[in-house]
Amino acid sequence: MEGIYKGAAVGALFVGVDGGGTSTRCVVVTASGEIAGRGRAGGANAISVPDPVANLRAALLGALEGLDPTRVAGGVFGLAGSARAAEPAERAWREAGLAGRPAVVADVLVAFTGATDQPDGAVLVAGTGAIGARVRDRRVVRRADGLGWLLGDEGSGVWLGRRAAAAALHAIDGRGAPTVLVARVAEAVLGTGAPGEDDGPALTQALVAAVYARVAESGPAWLGTLAPVVDAAAREGDEVARGIVAEAARRLCRTAGVVVGEGTPARGVRAGGGGGPLVLAGSLLTEPTELAHLVRAELGRRAVLMRAGDNAAGAAALAVRSALPGDPRADEAHRVLIEQGGPWG
């Protein structure tokens, strides 16, 4: 990726895009790291979103509003499944009226570079999906999970949503323990509260039909909208919800152990160990969720943790570094773009 935009004219602009399962964020920046424009649209994960090109284009156009597109010297897109995502990214780039083509890298890489200017470390993401990665010299050298909603993404929002819906259905038909998730999931999915004593079969049919219809309409990412439901129930003490969240935390920590220590949890990321920080990214780990509390408590005893900042800014920092390889101005621009990030105490 280095040197793609070397020699870009003074006054050039660079684009950074972070396309997740739920939302796409875009920033346009100067070579000094100043943000000139921002845009946001729906998700851009080709596995779980019906039309990622439209959302990528909308985010680009929003960020470029009022700016001269001919000044754009290049950009970096951070997308899940970067090999498959190159074609949608290039289509959106062209449809936004931009010349050339963007570089497409893994979404986990821009999560890492959006939090730290260090070249090495690891990142654990839990948002709509979930993945861990080891980073060396700002390149992903090892991954764990990130297999999509059907085969993996353990501990993700979609994973939590599926477990919440299943736990509610199990409680209704007697295969699972009683739980407030019955009423909470029903309210979230159907707009109704707790069922009556004889409403079990009817409620089961209504929930199943509604969940399948929502997934067919909006893609599997819709299941992630139920993640806050199970997280809130866990914080209130519901044992079934607490069990779901605890299992999610165990699975995420296992993923982190693979990429951080290449088989040994947290090896190489201790303070002073020289392996770089462990960046926690994704809304489930960066917001004050019960899942974040459990994951931080486990990994924080053994690792130097950093909270992810603006992933789109991390993508833009990579674009600037590509234009100015080895130039200290690129280092400074990177630091400017991640000022909001930092280690947890």
Rank of each mutant, 00 (worst) to 15 (best):
L109E: 08
G152T: 03
F77W: 11
A221N: 05
T22L: 00
G33T: 11
R335Q: 15
A319C: 10
N45V: 03
A96T: 11
V336S: 06
P328F: 07
A166N: 05
R162P: 05
D145G: 00
N311V: 07
V240T: 08
R296T: 12
Y212D: 08
R184Y: 07
A216L: 13
A330E: 07
A8Q: 00
W344T: 04
H334I: 04
R163G: 11
R242L: 15
Q340G: 14
E34D: 15
E339W: 02
G114S: 00
V211N: 03
A111F: 01
S218L: 05
F77G: 10
P52K: 13
A96Y: 06
A115T: 03
G314R: 02
G37K: 15
R91I: 04
R71A: 13
T264P: 09
L252I: 06
A281D: 07
G268F: 12
G157K: 09
R321S: 11
L285Q: 04
A323N: 07
A206K: 09
L291D: 03
G174C: 02
V28R: 04
P343F: 01
E217R: 14
A303K: 11
V295Q: 11
V320F: 02
Y5T: 02
G114F: 02
W149C: 07
P265M: 07
V240I: 04
G62V: 04
G341N: 03
C26N: 00
R94V: 05
I131E: 00
A256Y: 09
V182T: 04
V211D: 01
E197D: 05
A183R: 11
R301W: 12
N311A: 14
L181G: 12
A317R: 00
V211R: 05
T24C: 07
P102V: 09
V49R: 08
R91D: 08
G276E: 03
L226P: 03
V180I: 09
R143K: 12
D120Q: 04
A36T: 13
G97C: 13
V49A: 00
G33Y: 10
V182S: 00
